[in-house]
Write a protein that binds this DNA or RNA. Structure first.
Length: 283
DNA sequence: GCCCAGGAGTGTG
DNA sequence: CACACTCATGGG
């Protein structure tokens, strides 16, 4: 079943390939596919519309995609606001279609706990391993990210044999410490309280709490600081210091859309490191 | 082999 | 508050 929808501006390569989320795969010609909720979705960016292909009878696919790509974000307006920053204004037009995604809260939490001190290819593998073991099959050979219930059935030694390293213990205790009800309750907290609640969880520190706030709970003011962002802040803004200091700087500088600013800086820093084009400069 | 990775937890000064 | 150290392991 195919249908078209308008989500603009949108660059799927930038949005789905930059490490916000880990289960989308790029096919030829800019087509992306992957599991979204309990459905397997293929997305093909056309001139002015996004062509979506899902299994016949999938009624909620349109809503799922719109929600995941945050279709209601007024990205043009957000970029206009962030362009007041002289550093970002230089290259922001080249990430016009890079959108923040909205992930499932539980999937996001586990994913970014796994992401600690690992690189993206490995994170992808770990998440694929958990999904293939504990996820529900949605189409042939593709399994959804495991629910809290199914992942909770994994024993500690079982998890320890899956190549997660020390993260295996985090995942196991995470299952014991939180459930769907608790997550549902957290969606109603203000961002500061949410952050503190997340940090009470095993394997969740400043950075993971901010990633989960941003990509999982949709708090656009969150500004996760990893090694790449640290480098970007040093190089472009000559800012160094503790997490709290850098976070305060970002909050003051980028305000309610700090999350988008973070993603632009992150994308740019990684492109730069891999020899790609550099969007922003401090000159 | 070597260095690094979308860090967190714990202990110490 | 700031550091220092450890944690387990794959990717480039």
């Amino acid at each position: 079943m195919k249908f078209g929808m308008r989500i603009a501006p949108l660059n799927l390569d930038q949005t789905l390939g930059c490490g916000q989320t880990f289960r989308w795969r790029r096919l030829a010609d800019g087509v992306w596919e992957g599991p979204l909720g309990n459905q397997f979705v293929r997305m093909n960016p056309r001139k002015s519309t996004l062509e979506v292909d899902v299994a016949p009878g999938s009624k909620s696919a349109r809503r799922l995609v719109r929600n995941h790509l945050r279709a209601s974000d007024d990205v043009a307006s957000i970029q206009k606001r962030l362009s007041e920053d002289k550093v970002l204004s230089l290259g922001i037009t080249r990430v016009r279609g890079l959108r923040i995604v909205k992930m499932d809260e539980w999937e996001c939490l586990v994913s970014f706990v796994l992401a600690t001190y690992a690189n993206i290819p490995r994170i992808t593998r770990m998440i694929e391993t958990l999904s293939s073991r504990y996820g529900e099959e949605i189409v042939d050979g593709v399994r959804a990210f495991p629910t809290h219930e199914s992942l909770s059935e994994a024993s500690k030694p079982e998890l320890a044999r899956l190549g997660l390293g020390y993260r295996a213990d985090y995942v196991h205790s995470l299952c014991e410490r939180i459930d769907d009800r608790a997550i549902s309750h957290m969606t109603r907290l203000n961002s500061d309280s949410l952050r503190e609640k997340l940090k009470e969880l095993p394997g969740v520190g400043d950075k993971v709490a901010d990633c989960v706030s941003l990509f999982g709970f949709g708090r656009l003011e969150a500004f996760p600081i990893d090694v790449w962002i640290e480098r970007a802040l040093t190089r472009l803004y000559h800012k160094r210091g503790s997490y709290a200091k850098l976070r305060a700087f970002a909050s003051e500088r980028f305000g309610e859309y700090a999350g988008y600013a973070q993603e632009y800086l992150y994308y740019n820093e990684r492109m730069r490191a891999s020899g790609g084009a550099c969007l922003f400069s401090d000159e």
